[in-house]
């Protein structure tokens, strides 16, 4: 495992911790898209089926379990916690995420490394993760103001994707057999989706101002 991959995993973990902190400390999930969180839970559940079939390392297994447990906990809180669920911006979270599910599934049926149950679901999880942030970005854009923790959450999530690209570039040169086209192309698409957000994030950081997205 190279440093980019490790830092990518860590920023991913930090983003989830920031989201948990926001929900726990403020008992509020305002600005957070339940649809994006549900898609992430599905991404982890379908991708990490290999927990039952392949052992890679203790690190891998622990991280997978943490991602599954934390994503399910976030969805549960947003749906069921009496205080948290009242703060959910349901009227702003209107992205038609079923289209993302359907498109990702059809693409996985067409493009996969091997036509097998687990491999098709793996490809599905890769495609779905690439677009799962869209409901969140749309919600932020519609609400305009982004609170500090929500802004940091999306920033670290984007940083995780960018670091994974450096990880692939590194692997490509170190290991010439490394060809993960599905993951790499989807990862590029996924990172590109953050470009707009990053732009406004850095402007607000440079001006030391509150993060605001144009309507």
């Amino acid at each position: 495992m190279n440093i980019f991959r490790f830092l990518g995993d860590m920023t991913h973990l930090i983003s989830i911790l920031i989201l948990l902190l926001k929900i726990y400390a403020t008992k509020s999930c305002s600005g957070i898209s339940l649809k994006t969180q549900e898609l992430y839970a599905l991404v982890f559940l379908t991708r990490y089926l290999d927990l039952f079939t392949d052992f890679i390392s203790v690190y891998n297994t622990v991280m997978k379990l943490v991602f599954i447990a934390s994503s399910l906990a976030i969805v549960w809180c947003m749906r069921n916690h009496p205080l948290v669920r009242r703060s959910y911006d349901k009227q702003l979270d209107t992205f038609r995420h079923y289209f993302l599910l359907l498109a990702s599934f059809l693409l996985a049926l067409l493009l996969h490394e091997k036509f097998a149950f687990q491999e098709v679901l793996w490809a599905f999880s890769i495609y779905l993760e690439a677009v799962a942030i869209l409901p969140q970005l749309v919600l932020l854009q519609r609400s305009g103001n982004v609170d500090n923790l929500t802004g940091q959450y999306v920033f670290f999530l984007g940083a995780y994707r960018a670091l994974y690209i450096f990880n692939w570039i590194y692997r490509y040169f170190i290991d010439p057999h490394f060809t993960r086209w599905i993951a790499c192309v989807s990862g590029l698409v996924q990172t590109a989706l953050y470009a707009d957000f990053f732009y406004y994030y850095f402007i607000s950081w440079k001006n030391n101002a509150k993060l605001q997205l144009p309507a």
Binding site: R47, D54, I56, N60, R180
Partner: peptide, 10 residues
């Protein structure tokens, strides 16, 4: 085509 290896990334 080589067999896909295990998915070692998260």
């Amino acid at each position: 085509n080589p067999e896909p290896e295990v998915h070692d990334e998260l």
